[in-house]
Write a protein that binds this DNA or RNA. Structure first.
Length: 825
RNA sequence: GCGGCGGUGGCGGAACGGUAGACGCGGAGGCCUCAAAAGCCUCUGUCCGCAAGGGCGUGUGGGUUCGACUCCCACCCGCCGCACCA
C-alpha cells in the first residue's frame, strides 16, 4: 500500500524534465528490463520466475544508489486472443483487457517494483501509432518491401508465417499444423542487409554464449565464391554459390532446385520435359518434413541440357533434384561427387562420373599399393577433407587445396567467371499476416498511384471493429468495407487499405524504447530520454526468444540508428536467460494437468515465499523442477526468521551497531557471520546466484538462532536486520516489516550493506594438514603465522605424525591461510 | 552430422586447482504435549570398525599437478539449438 501510495518505484526523466535541484551529481542510471508478457489468461509460473529475478536485480541496483528504470507492459496483439474470439465471439480487445487486468493484479500482489507510470500495451493506438511510424520509416528507407515469394502458409491459422515460426519438421509454431508452401505477395523487412552487423556486433555484448551461438547459426554466414555456369543452348547464365571453389575441377554435373524458375524452360522441347514436370509437381507437393529428411535416397531427373564448367570448359549434364534448396544460395549447385557426400549419393544413384581432385589419405594408401589402385579408383571417396590438388590445372595441382582456394577465386575473378562471395542462411523477415488482431500496415493501394504510404500525420491507422473473425484465406479486415475503402493520400482518388496486419514480433521489437518516454504524444520518443536510459543494462527473459525476438530487436535498433533516430547499435547490453520451471520433469501444461498456479501459491503462502522459493530452487538460468516440499522449506525459513525478529524486536528497537571494540566470543562470532553474509550475498547477486544468496541468509539465521541467548541484544538486532536487508530483494514484504520492527527504518531507502573488512578476517583459522594430498588432521593456526610455523604445526598434529612415521619427507607445500601438504615416500 | 549446455548423496543443489556434499528437502532418533499439529534438539554419502580411525567415492578411461568435481586428451549418456545450407 505504501509503495502504491507513494509511487515509490517511479522514476522521472532528468534529461528532459527541468531538473529539480539544479546541480548536484546525478545518480548513475540503470535500466533493468524483463521481457514483456503476452497477456493470455493468468500469469503462469514462468512469469513468477522472470519477474522475481528481474525485481531482485532492480532492487539491488537501487540500493547501490542507482536510479532504476523498471517498467512493465503487455505484448497484447496476437493469435491466441483472436482464436479465442473466433471460438467465443468475444472481441480480442475485451479478452486481452481482462487478461491484462489479471496480470496487473498479480504483479501488485507479488510486490514487483514496477514504474506503473510507463505502462503500455502494444494493442493501444497510442502505441501502435508509432509501430506504424517505424514501419513507414523502414519503408521509406527501402527496408520494408513487397515481394511475391514461396512462403510458408499455415492451413489451420490461415496465415503466412515467418521462417522462424516454422519448426524443424515443418509445423506451425503456434498450432502445430503442417505448413504448406504458397506463392503470395507479402511484406518483408530487409533484415538480410544487416546480417554482417548482426553477426559482428555479437562480440560487443554481454550475452550468454549459447544465445550468441544460436544467433550465429541462424545467420549462417558462409564464405566462398559465386561461380557462373553457362548453358550455351539457351544462352543463359547460372551462378552458383560454393564454399569449395577448390573442387570446381571435380564438378561432373549441375543440379537445380525444383522451385528454380528456369527449370521448366530448360526442359522444354527435350525428351525429359514430361518427366521434369512430373518431378516438380511431386516435389512441390511434398511436405517440408518429407523433403527435409537428409536420410532419404536422392532423387532427381535430367533436364536434357548441359552447362559449361567455367574452369575447364567441360559440358556437364543438368539435373533437377529436390536435395537442392531454392532458399539457400542461388537455387542451383555445381555437383562435386568426389568431395561432397550428397553429390556422391546422387552420382551413385544415377551413374554419373565421380572424379577425385584432392588427394586424401585413402588415395595415398592406394599409391603405396599400386596393385589396388586400378580397381579402387573411387576408394576413399567422397572425401570432404583437405589435401593436395590433383586432376585440376597445372598451376594448381600439387598445392594444398586450402592454400590454393584463394588463388583459384582470384583466377576466376580475372577471367570474369566468378568472384569471392559470402552467403547467409538468414532470410528477409516476412511480416504481413492475414489476421485481424494485429497492427494495421499503414499503406493504401490507389488505382492511379499504386502503393502509397499513409502520411505520418494521419497515423494511427486504427484497427476497426469487425463481427466475423473467421479466417478465410484473406485478412478478416477485408470484410470491413467502410474501413478498407478510403481515399488516396496522394491523388485523393479512391483507394483501398492494406488489409494485412503486422507480425506481433514487430510490436515487441521496439517496446523497450517506448518505455523511456512512454507518454510522449508528439513522437515515438525524445532522443534525450533514450540517451538517459538506453541501452538496457540488464535484459532478462526466456531462452525461447534466443533467435526471434532478440534478433528482430537488434535489427530494429540498427536500422533505426542508421535512420538517425538512435545513437547506439545494440539494445540489450547484458542478457540473462532464465530456465524453465517443470513439474515432475515435464513442461507444465493444462493438458498434462500439472500446472502450478502462482495465484494459488501466493494466496496460500504469500508472495515472499513464492518468490524466494522460485529463486532458491536452483541456478535461475537452468531448468528446475517444482517441488511442494521445497516450497514448504522456504516458508519455514521465512517463518523462523520472522519469529526470531519479532521476539528480538520486543526487547527494544534501535539502529545502533554493537560497540565494535571489545567484541568477544559469541558476539564476535555472530558479527563475523553477518559480515560474511553481506559479502556473500553481494557477490552472489552480481552473478545471478540467488540460490546461494538465500542459502547464505539461512546460514546467518541459523547462527542467530544458535547464539540468541549468548549474544548482546545489539549484536542480535544488527545480525537480524542485516538478514532482512539482504533478503529484501527476494522477499520484499516480510523484510520491510522485519527491518522496520528492528530499526524503525524503511529498508528500501537504506543503502546496500557494506561488509567491514576487519570482520571478514579472524586471527585464527583451521589449518588443513595433508599428507600426500590426503586430509589427515586440522589444527588451529594464527592468521599471521609464517610458513615455517605452519609446517611445524602440521608436523605436530597427532594424526599427521601417524602417517609420517618412518617415511622420508620429500616435499612441503604451504598455502598460507589454507593448508600444509607434506609429501612423503 | 554440426554447434552449445550438462552428468556430484535418497532428492534439488554447494564447492577462486586446496577440508567434496554448503543450504534446503526427505529420512532416523529425541524433547515438548493427555495426544496430535506446529516448534525445538541430535544424527544422516558409502563400506569396515565399539571407538579412534581407515578404505572407497563427483558418468568412463587416460594425462598434467604436491594436490583435480574443477585443467588437458579420448569416449559414454542426457538435454537444447541448427540441419540435404552446397
Amino acid at each position: 500500500a505504501v509503495w502504491a501510495r507513494e509511487r515509490t518505484w517511479e522514476v522521472t526523466n532528468e534529461g528532459t524534465a527541468p531538473s529539480a535541484s539544479g546541480e548536484g551529481a546525478r545518480a548513475e542510471s540503470s535500466y533493468v528490463l524483463e521481457m514483456l508478457p503476452y497477456p493470455s489468461g493468468e500469469p503462469h509460473i514462468g512469469h513468477l520466475k522472470v519477474y522475481s529475478v528481474g525485481d531482485a536485480i532492480a532492487h539491488y541496483h537501487r540500493r547501490l544508489g542507482r536510479r532504476v528504470l523498471h517498467p512493465m507492459g503487455y505484448d497484447a496483439f496476437g493469435l491466441p486472443a483472436e482464436n479465442h474470439a473466433i471460438k467465443t465471439g468475444v472481441h480480442p480487445r475485451d479478452s486481452t483487457a481482462e487478461s491484462i487486468a489479471s496480470f496487473q493484479r498479480q504483479f501488485r500482489r507479488w510486490g514487483i517494483s514496477i514504474d506503473w507510470s510507463r505502462e503500455l500495451a502494444t494493442c493501444e493506438p497510442d502505441y501502435y501509432r508509432w509501430t506504424q511510424w517505424i514501419f513507414l520509416e523502414l519503408f521509406h528507407a527501402g527496408l520494408a518491401y513487397r515481394k511475391e515469394a514461396a512462403v510458408k502458409w499455415c492451413p489451420h491459422d490461415q496465415t503466412v508465417l515467418a521462417n522462424e515460426q516454422v519448426d524443424a519438421e515443418g509445423h506451425c509454431e503456434r498450432c502445430g499444423a503442417l505448413v504448406e508452401i504458397r506463392q503470395l505477395e507479402q511484406w518483408f523487412l530487409r533484415i538480410t542487409d544487416y546480417a554482417e552487423r548482426l553477426l559482428g556486433d555479437l562480440d560487443e555484448i554481454a550475452w550468454p554464449e549459447h544465445v550468441k551461438t544460436m544467433q550465429r547459426n541462424w545467420i549462417g554466414r558462409s564464405e566462398g565464391a559465386e561461380v557462373t555456369f553457362r548453358c550455351e543452348e539457351l544462352g543463359s547464365d547460372y551462378p552458383v554459390f560454393t564454399t569449395r571453389p577448390d573442387t570446381l575441377f571435380g564438378a561432373t554435373f549441375f543440379v537445380m532446385a525444383p522451385e528454380h524458375p528456369d527449370v521448366m524452360r530448360l526442359a522444354q522441347g527435350t525428351e525429359h520435359e514430361r518427366a521434369v514436370s512430373e518431378y516438380i509437381n511431386q516435389a512441390l507437393n511434398e511436405t517440408n518434413e518429407e523433403r527435409g529428411n537428409a536420410e532419404k535416397p536422392k532423387t532427381g531427373v535430367p533436364l536434357g541440357r548441359t552447362v559449361t564448367n567455367p574452369v575447364n570448359g567441360e559440358q556437364i549434364p543438368m539435373y533437377v533434384a529436390d536435395y537442392v534448396l531454392m532458399e539457400y544460395g542461388t537455387g542451383a549447385i555445381m555437383a562435386v561427387p568426389g568431395h561432397d557426400e550428397r553429390d556422391y549419393a546422387f552420382a551413385r544413384a544415377y551413374d554419373l562420373p565421380i572424379r577425385r581432385v584432392i588427394e586424401g589419405p585413402a588415395s595415398a594408401a592406394s599409391e603405396a599399393d599400386p596393385s589396388a589402385a586400378e580397381t579402387t579408383e573411387e576408394e576413399g571417396l567422397p572425401y570432404p577433407g583437405d589435401g593436395l590438388l590433383v586432376n585440376s590445372r597445372a598451376d594448381f595441382d600439387g598445392r594444398n587445396n586450402r592454400e590454393a582456394l584463394g588463388a583459384i577465386v582470384e583466377w576466376l575473378d580475372r577471367e570474369g567467371k566468378g568472384h569471392a562471395s559470402i552467403n547467409y542462411r538468414l532470410r528477409d523477415w516476412l511480416v504481413s499476416r492475414q489476421r485481424y488482431w494485429g497492427c494495421p500496415i499503414p499503406i493504401v493501394y490507389c488505382e492511379r498511384c499504386g502503393l502509397v504510404p499513409v502520411p505520418v500525420e494521419e497515423l494511427p491507422v486504427r484497427l476497426p471493429d469487425i463481427d466475423d473473425y473467421t479466417p478465410k484465406g484473406r485478412s478478416p479486415l477485408a470484410a470491413a468495407e467502410d474501413w478498407v475503402n478510403t481515399t488516396c493520400p496522394s491523388c485523393s482518388g479512391s483507394a483501398r487499405r492494406e488489409t494485412d496486419t503486422m507480425d506481433t514480433f514487430v510490436d515487441s521489437s521496439w517496446y523497450f524504447l517506448r518505455y523511456c518516454d512512454a507518454r510522449n504524444e508528439q513522437a515515438a520518443w525524445d532522443p534525450a530520454a533514450l540517451r538517459e536510459w538506453m541501452p538496457v543494462d540488464q535484459y532478462i527473459g526466456g531462452v525461447e526468444h534466443a533467435i526471434l525476438h532478440l534478433l528482430y530487436a537488434r535489427f530494429f535498433t540498427k536500422a533505426l540508428a542508421d535512420l538517425g533516430h538512435l545513437d547506439f547499435q545494440e539494445p540489450f547490453q547484458a542478457l540473462f536467460t532464465q530456465g524453465m520451471v517443470t513439474k515432475d520433469g515435464a513442461k507444465m501444461s493444462k493438458s498434462r494437468g500439472n500446472v502450478v498456479s502462482p495465484a494459488a501459491l501466493v494466496e496460500r503462502y504469500g508472495a515472499d515465499t513464492a518468490r524466494c522459493y522460485i529463486l532458491f530452487i536452483g541456478p535461475p538460468d537452468q531448468d528446475a523442477d517444482w517441488s511442494d516440499e521445497g516450497m514448504e522449506g522456504v516458508h519455514r525459513f521465512l517463518s523462523r526468521l520472522w519469529r526470531l525478529v519479532v521476539e528480538t524486536a520486543a526487547r527494544g528497537q534501535g539502529a545502533s551497531m554493537p560497540a565494535s571494540q571489545p567484541l568477544a566470543d559469541d558476539d564476535l562470532k555472530l558479527m563475523r557471520k553477518a559480515h560474511w553474509a553481506i559479502e556473500k550475498v553481494s557477490g552472489d547477486l552480481r552473478r545471478f546466484a540467488f540460490n546461494t544468496a538465500i542459502a547464505a541468509v539461512m546460514e546467518l539465521l541459523n547462527e542467530c538462532s544458535r547464539l540468541r541467548e549468548s549474544v548482546g541484544i545489539e549484536t542480535l538486532r544488527f545480525s537480524l536486520s542485516t538478514a532482512a536487508s539482504l533478503l529484501f530483494p527476494f522477499a520484499p514484504h516480510v523484510c520491510t516489516d522485519m527491518y522496520e520492527r528492528l530499526t524503525g527504518a524503511r529498508v528500501w531507502e537504506e543503502p546496500w550493506p557494506q561488509a567491514d573488512p576487519a570482520l571478514l578476517e579472524s586471527e585464527t583459522y583451521e589449518l588443513v594438514c595433508q599428507v600426500n594430498g590426503k586430509l589427515r588432521d586440522r589444527v588451529q593456526a594464527a592468521a599471521d603465522a609464517s610458513a615455517e610455523e605452519l609446517k611445524a604445526l602440521c608436523k605436530a598434529a597427532p594424526n599427521v605424525q601417524a602417517h609420517l612415521d618412518g617415511k622420508e619427507l620429500v616435499k612441503e607445500i604451504v598455502v598460507p591461510g589454507k593448508l600444509v601438504n607434506l609429501v612423503v615416500r
